Every structure is written in structure tokens, then in C-alpha cells.
Amino acid sequence: HVFNDKGELYLQKRPAWKDIQPNKWDTSVGGHIDLGESVEMALKREAQEELGISDFTFELLTHYVFESNREKELVFCHRTIYNGEISPSNELDGGRFWSIEEIKNNLGKGVFTPNFESEFARLKF
């Protein structure tokens, strides 16, 4: 989770061509760990690939298993505060910072992925 100094959370928009949760807003950095990679190495790689950021410090918030009727994932959730330039990759349909209140007002309305809504509730931002 990428926050700025105002406490806003950066979310990515999934493109229409994605087969899972197209056109929905989601956690800004997500991906899979490659063979031989640590969680931290994968986090740095994915942040660079998806947002173009590489100079940041992070803290582990939690880890858990997410399961839906289509997938099952072991999720490691991290947090950073970042105020530099963000350049979403071509894999995304853009992104922006959201206030926590704005997120709360849009929960349950089909705006966000179920993964994000579940994690947002779990972490109680």
C-alpha cells in the first residue's frame, strides 16, 4: 500500500482487458514471487514494474491467505509512504491517490476488487 503524506492511498485501475476484475480499482502493487526471489525482492521488482518507483522503505503489515472461487493466494501486505513521481505501467489503466473517506464511501458499490475490499476491512485503515 502506497500512502502519501496526506494519508491518501494510491490505487491502480485494472484495465478492461483483464479477465479477473476488469475496470476495478485495486491495491497499487501486486504480483507473484518468482522462483528464487524473496518477498522483499518481489515487492521491489513489482513496485518498479507497476509504478516506476524504486527508492522507498516499507514495513510488513500482515500476511494471510485470500481465497475466492477462482484463486487462492498467500498475500504479504506492506505499507510505504511515498511522495515522489508515480508512473503507472501499460499493464494498468492508470491510478490515483484516494482519501480514506472516499474509499469508505465507495465500498460495496462494485468500484473496488473484492481482494482490495477484504484487505481494507482486515487492515482497518
Rank of each mutant, 00 (worst) to 15 (best):
H1F: 14
N4I: 07
N4K: 08
E8W: 10
L9K: 04
L9S: 02
L9A: 05
L11Q: 00
L11F: 01
Q12P: 00
P15G: 15
K18F: 15
D19N: 14
T27S: 12
G30M: 09
G30K: 02
G30S: 12
G31H: 12
I33K: 06
G36I: 02
G36H: 09
E37C: 10
A42F: 12
I53G: 01
S54K: 05
T57V: 07
T57H: 14
L60V: 10
H63G: 04
F66Q: 07
E67S: 14
S68W: 11
S68V: 07
S68L: 10
N69R: 11
N69I: 13
R70Y: 15
K72L: 06
K72S: 08
E73D: 06
C77G: 09
C77W: 10
H78A: 13
R79Q: 06
I81C: 11
Y82T: 01
Y82F: 15
I86G: 00
S87C: 11
P88S: 09
P88D: 03
N90C: 03
L92M: 08
L92Y: 11
D93H: 08
R96T: 05
R96Q: 12
I100M: 06
E101M: 08
E101Q: 14
K104L: 13
N105G: 08
N105H: 10
G108W: 09
K109C: 03
V111Q: 04
T113D: 02
N115A: 12
F116W: 03
F120Y: 14
F120T: 05
L123H: 06
